[in-house]
Every structure is written in structure tokens, then in C-alpha cells.
Design a protein around this nucleic acid. Sequence first.
DNA 1: GCATGCAAAATTGTTAACAATCATGTCAGC
DNA 2: GCTGACATGATTGTTAACAATTTTGCATGC
Lengths: 249, 249
Amino acid sequence: MESIVTMAKAEQTGSYKGSEKLRPEEMIYHEMLDAILDRRLEPGMKLIEEDLAKTFGVSRARIRATFLQLAHDKLINLVPNRGAFVAEPTIDEAIEVFSARRMIEDGVARKVATSMTPERAEQIKAHLDREHDAHHRGDHRAAIILSGEFHLLLARLSGNLVIEEFLERLILRTSLIIAMYESPQPVDCSHTEHDQLLNALLSGDPDVAAAEMSRHLDAIRDRLQLQRPKPGKTDFASIFGRIPTSEAS
Amino acid sequence: MESIVTMAKAEQTGSYKGSEKLRPEEMIYHEMLDAILDRRLEPGMKLIEEDLAKTFGVSRARIRATFLQLAHDKLINLVPNRGAFVAEPTIDEAIEVFSARRMIEDGVARKVATSMTPERAEQIKAHLDREHDAHHRGDHRAAIILSGEFHLLLARLSGNLVIEEFLERLILRTSLIIAMYESPQPVDCSHTEHDQLLNALLSGDPDVAAAEMSRHLDAIRDRLQLQRPKPGKTDFASIFGRIPTSEAS
DNA sequence: GCATGCAAAATTGTTAACAATCATGTCAGC
DNA sequence: GCTGACATGATTGTTAACAATTTTGCATGC
């Protein structure tokens, strides 16, 4: 099974086969990343160093280093003397991430809108074609990846590496949030929203572009189920009232 | 000698003495941070694991973990099989960092301007008073710290923890850039610019606030000497023409 | 039956020794 | 005298064992 992340890198660089030659440390980081974003590792799950070390055939030291990376990206939590746990972004956290993205990507949209060229427009259109392709093929997995990369492409076009790297992490974090809070029937309509975004960018008006970007990010957020208590591993709320304390009802 | 960072934390929390109780790992991170920002560790300098381990009385493993943190913040470079080196931000990198800050802090300024309250205004004014104090006392060190914290305060008032944390790293990175490229006679006039910024924020107009923030960040950048080749450790350029190859002139 | 305390197991944190890699200096050969 | 191979030393990368901590299970006492 391909990994979401290595696939993403492959899409980006155009050489998927090359991903086999990743250094072991990067390989492990990406494998764990994928497992988390795929929810093969559920939020809150304990990550035991030695088990992972054996699984990947490396020493615990390397797993520890990988943990530091993932913790830095807020994808796992590191608790002293307790270990590592897959992150469980709260609703407030999710809202803040979207808010942060809006602040940053508004700026990205402004820059891209005011620095648009025919070549860049073509580049964006080519990407949208691939998004549409994936959508029509019914490839939900690829659609999610490409959707994230659309935002990353705009960040790259804005010409600032610092912003690009930060947004990359924020998009990963968003992926975890979506994995955790997405509605049961995932209605992936973001590809049409990306079309609208392109139109706004082509208008050349930074305010129009920023407004459209904000609308898009809000729409993604609003498609999530951020109002529910959303059961964790131990969900008391949905059990209360049904617990047979002695012999009630 | 107090550390810049622990001082900063102390200013922030109001309890400097408490910094002694930092966990050793954090202590080491902050010590190294300070040394880098103070230029006691010069850009490009090799950081040898064992020496540092002995210096701090810990194992190499901890130093290694600290390196990962610092590398993530782009304050050191980690080269496989070669070791760790204090980062040497290039001119292009410096320009990108300021550009990134402008994109983010424009948004911060907009939010703060539109959500201003009398209490918040007082909070900002109180901070500015401390900046003026430090300036009039001639305490350049404190002035630099407080200047950075001014921007962090605005980020906090913008109410987004994600942005706040990212900006904190970016400010550290800016500090290294300033340490590397500041002009010989440091003219610290940023405290008056912060006054102007407050006025803009009080106007309540997001566009005015964002414009003032951009102007301020550009001003900081323009006070640096980013045009020079800026000699590294081994400065050939300034030696060329004087080297006696055999017996020429 | 339930809470409390204790002991054993599991897991993380730390250290030291060993292996692999890279930088430095030396020497032979041209 | 200069170039390149080689040996040496320094440094990083890795592993395994040990110490400290937390979790779990069990027994004891109420």
C-alpha cells in the first residue's frame, strides 16, 4: 500500500520510485505520518518505542528522534516519563488552525493574484485538471492529496519558502483534523471551490482573491462536525443514562 | 550573566527566579539559544556533541535532541555525518524571513485593530512604557528583548496560538539575522515606530494598521546591511590583492 | 464488595561502549 | 615541488545494557 505522503512527494517531484531511496530516518517519519493521517494509528493511541523500533528494524534512539519531529509538527504528544501519543486536536485547536491558515493564505492569495502570469495560470490549471481527474475517477484518496497540494502550490507561487514550509506543516495538521472530524458522508466539493479560487486569482484584485480564499477555508471547516462532543477513546457522554449502576430500568 | 531568553521568559511571566527550575533539557536549549543570539557562538561555528555534553554535564543523547530542536527552528544546520553548525542565514533567507513576517503580521495587525478594547490598549501602552524605560536607561539588551516581545504581544492579542508560536520562532530567527547583519552603529529607533504602530492600531482601520506594520518591518530590514557580501569566517574577498603569490608588486 | 497498598511487569530515560564516517597530516611517487 | 594514496585521529552514528519511572495486577484489610 502506497503512503499518502510518499505519494504526495512523488506527485510533486514526478519520481515515485525514487522514494525507496529515502534515508531510513525520513522513511520512518513518513511511514508514521501516513499511518496517523490514514487513522491506522488512531488519535490518542500510545506509541511504544520498542515495538516501533522492532517493526522498523531500527534502534529506539531513531524512533525517539522521529518522535521529536512529529511532536514538533503537533501530530503526536510527548509526555515526560509517559511516552508518545497520537495527537487528538480539540475543537478549539481545529478552529485555531483554520483561523491561522486563513490569516496566512489570505496573504498568499493576495500575492499570487497580484503576480499572476500566463505561465502561472497554466500551472494552476494543470493542477486543477489533475484534481478533476481524481474526482471523476472516484479516487478519494488522491483527491485529498491533490487538494492539499493545491494550497501548497499557491504558497510556492507566492515565492516565500518560509511560508511554504510553515503551511506544509499546517496542512498536515489539517489533514489530521479532517481525519478526526470529517462528516460520515464525505462530500468532497473542494475541487469546484478551487475553480472559483482560480477565477478570483485571475481577477488580479488582491481583496477579491483573499476573500475567496477565506470563504474556501471556512467552507472546509464548516463541512466538519466540529460541534459534536466527538467521542474519544472513552466516551462517557454517550454512555451516561444507560449505565446499569445496579438494576435501574 | 543572565540569558536573553530566560530574561525574556521572566519578563513575560514576571518570575525570573523560577527559571532555575526549568527542566535540564529546556535549560540547555535556552542556554544554547542565548549563546547563538549573543554571538558567543558565531554563525558557521561547529558544535561538537561531546564538548557540549561535558560542558552541560549531560550525555550526548540529550545534546543530540537539543540539536534537533534548534535545527527545526533553523538556528543551526545539521549535516549528516558532519555534525551541527550555527546557522548562517543568507541575505536571500533574511529577506524571505522579513517577507514572511510581513505577511503574517499584517494579518495580526488587522485583527488587533478590529478587536481593540480599552484594556488591550492599556496592555500595549504598558509594554511601550517598558520599552521606553529600557531605551532611556540605555539598556540596549533589554530594548532588543522587549522589542521582540512587542510583536509577540500583538500576536497573542490576535488570539491565535498557532500564529503566536510560529511568530515566536520567526522572531528568534530574526534575532539571529539582526545579530549577523546589524549595522556597526546600531540605531535603535524601533521604539518610536512601535508608538506609531499603536496609533495605527487604535485607529481601528485594518488597512491602516497593516500598512503601518509593513512599513515598520521594512524599516527594520532596511536598517540592516543586507547588501554587503558580509565576510564569513574565512574572508577571501578582503584579502585578494594582498596575497604575496611569489614576489609580485 | 470496594478501596488501599504493595509487588511485578512494562516502558521510558540515561549512560557508556563500539562501529562507521569524515577530517587531517604524512609520505611515496612522479 | 606537487599530486594523490594512505594512515591516523577526531567526531558522529548506533547499539545494548542499566537505572528510574510508571502502569498493572494482586492481595490484604476494612
